[in-house]
């Protein structure tokens, strides 16, 4: 069972709908037992960073703890941004600190938010992005992006006048700045990949 964290922000339902569409058992929950027993955790997010972090509250520590123990974790959009150390959206906020880096504004001089379908180069060694080809369009909607300095993280980039991280992977921790649940067939394939990773990990644990 994959658990999508329900923490009173938008878009949680879309993530569940997309997992159900690919035939994955998914539960929307904020219960500590559900997080503990899940084969994988999805941290979705349509919200401002500060609001999302405070809405997550005490669950943050638990999510961090199970992720460090090896449970697959997928962060999406603001949920992805929360994997990093800090963000400067509407004030300074701390994230989960699972991946070294900070969430900063997209540099001026272009249309912001970065909204729409942009081409992501898909590195061969990123399991989450496997089976889709070498590049594909995904749907983005954000004004901040994560700059990572983590040398243990693999990064896929998109071009928005500069090389902008679009997806990261560090061991069992995965994240996408774009919305796989809103990116048509290619997005559903990413969720399928995460589902497959969770099934595999559940067998080996």
């Amino acid at each position: 069972m994959i658990v999508v964290i329900d923490y009173n922000v938008g878009n949680v339902k879309s993530v569940c709908n997309a997992f159900r569409h690919i035939g994955c058992d998914v539960e929307l929950s904020c219960a500590p037992e559900a997080v503990e027993n899940a084969t994988g955790i999805v941290l979705p997010g349509v919200a401002a960073f500060g609001y999302a972090v405070s809405a997550l509250g005490a669950l943050a520590e638990q999510i961090k703890e199970v992720a460090l123990r090896g449970k697959p974790l997928l962060g999406i959009c603001v949920g992805y941004q929360m994997l990093f150390d800090t963000s400067s959206e509407y004030g300074q906020h701390n994230g989960l600190g699972l991946i070294e880096g900070s969430v900063v504004p997209i540099p001026a001089g272009r249309v912001i938010p970065h909204m729409g379908w942009n081409l992501v180069k898909l590195p061969e060694d990123m399991e989450l992005l496997a089976g889709i080809g070498s590049e594909k369009h995904f749907y983005f909607a954000h004004s901040f992006y994560a700059e990572t300095s983590d040398r243990h993280a693999k990064v896929a980039y998109t071009d928005y006048g500069f090389n902008m991280p679009a997806s990261v992977q560090k061991m069992n921790i995965y994240g996408t700045q774009f919305h796989p649940e809103k990116s048509g067939e290619a997005g559903l394939k990413i969720l399928q990949n995460f589902y497959d990773i969770c099934k595999r990990e559940a067998l080996t644990c």
């Binding site: 349509v46 919200a47 401002a48 509407y90 004004s143």
Partner: peptide, 9 residues
């Protein structure tokens, strides 16, 4: 709305 949901919404 922007402060709660992010301006992209």
């Amino acid at each position: 709305s922007a402060q709660r949901f992010g301006n992209q919404c």
